[in-house]
Design a protein around this nucleic acid. Structure first.
Lengths: 337, 337
DNA sequence: TCCCTCCGTGTAATCGATTCCACGAGGAGG
DNA sequence: CCTCCTCGTGGAATCGATTACACGGAGGGA
């Protein structure tokens, strides 16, 4: 692979001049410029990003540590992050933590070893020493979706409070009174917040949220299945289950189907996170939709602001309720008569 | 951030010795080794991967250029690739080509600029000059899922021929005779092969595949919708539609639902690629399942073999039919009486 | 005419590692 | 006791870029 010296030789100038042309430094004569450009063309020269990074201490690469790639919500987030990063001239290295703090640490470590310019994290836990080290060491960082308290890292996230209130209003309007929730890990902010928002919304209708109506989940399908089975074994099972993410909703579907029960006739279902497939499940699922792409874009912008010396700002975007049929009473349909 | 010199100073040895300890070179005295290790610990030193890469000409990074991240099949593939790569000591940089050749080229270019050790590609087209350049330049490469003829790049893929035969047998057994297919882009091998396999399987039952029963799709949901509408507008619409990927199957679902028709009563549906959600759609969808994780792992192993100087081998794994209810006649269910 | 300034360019240092080579000490063998 | 080999170590070159600095020549002002 041709190096800058080869180009310099071909163009009959020094490597310094080639570098100046490539970084369009002002003081290069027009003749030198054209000769260099011709040599670059002739050799198909491409600057070695590794060497450049070593010298400039910039990799133009961002790290994204995501809790679970198989979760469509995070997939969409990742896609949006990559798009915006590309638009701003950055590449992205993804790390899939699979909700495991040890894997999360692994990725943070290797990403920092590679001297990425900044880190986008959706923490799987309350913050490992390693992550806090990274923050303290001054690695530019932005939290997305989930965050860790007690740091001054900017946070880009959705606020579901309003949408959860709308959901409870919707359920109450349909006559449901015994509502249950399957939460995420208490170590995650989203795990805690979503129960809190739900509890608060219930309070407005003088509804209770007894402990046996709170299923402890981990944002994975299997935990949704287990929690649902426990609900169904209750002497008086809940009328509606609210899953705090889309994968656990899948688990609910599984469990309900395994017992030969039907949604919404036997039990209702709602989910946090809306994804394309929810339109096509049996039945279509009512969900709280996050502005996922905007979150991804905003997160990258905040991180790049931080990297390039501008003040990054935290962003909170509203989520909204999308009513479908999984809690009873069909949403208006446009089917032909 | 501490460098090797800082460690050397702290340990009272030269940088060369530190390097030797870290790469466990045999000739280092035990005392020097412990002093260096202590200094590394004390300073929290981590080698700069950028500098190391410049010197050794190895980045321990693979590039994965995928046609569409939002497609669950590729997501699963990406996950498997990252897992296996991690196990072998490599990181992965993903590039999402979104089925666009220009984006694919962009990613190949920036990945090569970053001097990735090898490239895993699922080509969105028949091979751009840039991709062929990369092959000719000797960049270690492996094609996964899709491939490009006329290169000696190893290919890791699934063979769906047998499973498609099983599918046609299944459909024929259910009494269906007018079968249609929605294909992928003719520029992709999977786009072409799947029609070919289908056509061949039909021939065994003396069934025709008239042109108006071939919908030209592009592996995206919208094209599945459009093709289905055209099928439904036919004087005698097909009895079953076979979508050549899971996203186009989603489009079929959309189109059928929009007309107020039902699956499988009014029209049957089968898909290439099985994904978790197909169990939960209305109705559950019959699909040809690829051994996605094994493909991902095998692809990484082949690529790493190539990188590390061993002879890489192409791998073809069989796909298999998973029968559900979307073509009629329920599959055996374990629901309680 | 002389001097100062500015412009274009090349030389060399630098980033942080790895690795070749040389050197001194110590042990083995003659 | 001398020679030779091995072992542990440090010095210095190297990877491919960027960039501070020096230098020569041209041009302008006094």
């Amino acid at each position: 692979m041709a190096s800058i010296k080869d180009v310099a030789a071909e163009a009959g100038v020094s490597a310094a001049t080639v570098s100046r042309v490539l970084n369009d430094h002002p003081s290069v004569s027009p003749e030198a410029r054209t000769r260099v450009l011709a040599a670059v063309e002739a050799l198909g020269y491409r600057p070695n990003a590794v060497a450049r990074s070593l010298r400039t201490d910039q990799t133009h690469t961002l790290g994204l540590v995501i809790s679970d790639v198989m979760n469509p919500y995070f997939t969409e987030l990742a896609r949006a992050v990559e798009e915006e990063a590309r638009a701003l001239g950055y590449s992205v290295i993804f790390g899939n933590a699979d909700e495991r703090p040890d894997l999360q640490d692994h990725h943070i470590r290797t990403l920092r070893d590679r001297r990425i310019d900044g880190l986008l994290v959706s923490p799987a836990d309350g913050g490992s020493p390693l992550m806090l080290d990274a923050v303290r060491a001054g690695t530019p960082m932005v939290f997305v979706d989930r965050w860790i308290a007690g740091t001054d890292v900017p946070v880009v996230r959705a606020d579901g409070r309003e949408a959860v209130r709308d959901l409870v209003a919707h359920l109450h309007g349909l006559g449901h009174r015994r509502l249950a929730i399957i939460t995420g890990p208490a170590a995650t902010t989203t795990g805690r917040e979503r129960v809190e928002a739900f509890r608060e919304a219930l309070r407005a209708y003088d509804l209770e949220l007894p402990d046996d109506h709170i299923g402890q989940g981990d944002f994975q399908a299997e935990s949704g299945r287990r929690a649902t089975e426990r609900f169904l074994d209750l002497p008086e099972p809940p009328e509606v289950v609210f899953a705090a993410d889309n994968l656990m909703a899948l688990g609910v579907l599984d469990a309900v189907r395994a017992r030969g029960l039907r949604i919404p006739e036997d039990i209702g279902l709602a989910a946090f996170d809306d994804i394309p497939w929810f339109v096509h499940t049996d039945p279509p699922i009512t969900a709280v939709a996050q502005p996922t792409r905007e979150l991804g874009r905003a997160a990258v912008r905040a991180l790049v602001d931080r990297i390039e010396g501008r003040a990054p700002k935290s962003v909170t975007l509203p989520a909204r309720l999308v009513v479908r049929r999984s809690c009873g009473e069909p949403a208006p349909e446009r089917s032909k008569p």
